Computed example of a mutant assay.
Amino acid sequence: MSNNNLISIISLIAVFVSLLLAFFLLTVSTKNKLANILLASFIILNAIDLSGWFIFYITKDYPNIEVFRWSTSWLINPLFYLYALSICFSDFRLKIKHLLHAIPFLLDNLVLLFKVYVVDLASKIHFLENYRDSAMRQILLIGGHLQFAYYIIAIFFILRRYKKIYQENYTDNTTITYKWLFQLTVVIVIVHSIVMFKDFLMFNGSNDVFNKAQIIVGINAVFILCWFVLKALYSPDLFRGIDSRIQPAGNLATETAVNTQIVKGIVSLENKEDILRIKEYMVQHEPYLEPSLTIQDLADQINVPVRDLSILINNQLGQHFFDFVNEYRIEKAMKILKDPARSNLTILEVLYEIGFNSKSSFNTSFKKHTNLTPTAYRQKHS
């Protein structure tokens, strides 16, 4: 079997799996429908791009369709960026301003309008036959790689902000939004790096190695899509977004310092009293036993503005809300593990009782606090 035939078969499989996954995302019941639509659109456009390895034998007789198919690749990276926003921030909505992301797509089609769309058939065919070695293709490929780099960097900034805000305001460690999006982004970066290497080989005339690189890209695409399918089938609604209007505590503290002359690291008498009141409430009422406790929930319970509470915990105490609450959970777990009367409880039962939902997160937090695993701690104090 020739390399071209093998590439065509692999790409055909990848496109089929892509469309299957997109159909699932568009029809499955979920709270975050917008995220699914954006991800499905991202996958469909990737399928259109992959289809070039076999569909060219059909579209070469329809130049307008073929070159328009090329141009849709400019929408892939913006869609992934918008998808990242939609799963990280629960209040994200598409707005008119997001159409600005389509400018490269529109500019490309504007150029194609005069080079392909409105010219005679002979000129269209001449353009297709000479496009592979043309300067225009090289410029567009370089532009596409630069666009990819821009959006990937933007997504990593989104992830950093999401993680910071989540740790400062939430304690439910079952969320996998960050982990999923980070893994997905890294995988896409790796695959795109292979694509860049493939394009470099094409420019240098290494056709044999180029074809092998094409096969590697196709196989990777199939495996990644299968990973997508498994994720979607087993966890169709596993993401938890945060409100994008929430500001990191560092920003709030800076604003407060300007307005009230509170300097980070210097705790006023009033702040000390508030901190003592919060700690007493945590010990007496044990709100941390609620797995989904948020900083807004705690602020409502102790009747303190959430902005002030965030500054007190994240800035004055120098802790994320996530770590602040988990300290009380671990202290509670230590008491239970040392209690002979409760030695019949399993580690899993203990972690559920104190507000954790994940064994791995409990073990990580426990070891961070005590330098021992829960099992080792129990054995030491038995």
Rank of each mutant, 00 (worst) to 15 (best):
H320C: 06
I224H: 02
Q138I: 08
D243H: 13
I302A: 01
L45I: 01
A14K: 02
V191S: 11
K335P: 02
L25R: 11
N211R: 12
F157V: 11
V187L: 14
K60F: 07
D237G: 05
L34F: 08
F114W: 14
A299R: 00
D208W: 04
N303A: 14
T177S: 09
I43D: 00
M282P: 02
D237Y: 07
A84E: 04
D274Y: 03
T364W: 04
K359P: 00
S343D: 05
N3Q: 14
P287Q: 07
D208L: 14
I152M: 13
G205M: 10
N36W: 03
L348E: 15
V118P: 00
Y131W: 08
Y83T: 09
Q183C: 11
S8I: 03
V191R: 07
V222E: 04
R93K: 15
F203Y: 08
I10H: 00
N259L: 11
H145T: 07
F223Y: 12
N251F: 12
K33G: 04
S358M: 12
S360Q: 15
I65W: 08
V67R: 02
A35M: 12
E331C: 04
G52H: 09
H98L: 07
L269S: 13
L75V: 07
P287T: 08
Y166L: 11
I158C: 05
I58S: 08
N326P: 06
T254Y: 10
N3L: 14
V258Y: 09
Q284T: 11
L121F: 13
I55F: 05
V258S: 08
Q296E: 12
L348S: 15
F228L: 05
I103T: 12
E327A: 07
N371K: 13
D297G: 05
I215T: 06
I242C: 08
E286F: 02
Q316R: 10
L345A: 03
I278Y: 01
S360H: 12
I103W: 03
I190F: 15
I58L: 15
G250T: 11
S71I: 04
F54N: 02
F210V: 01
V283R: 13
N109S: 07
F200H: 12
K198H: 11
N204K: 14
Y150E: 00
L12Q: 14
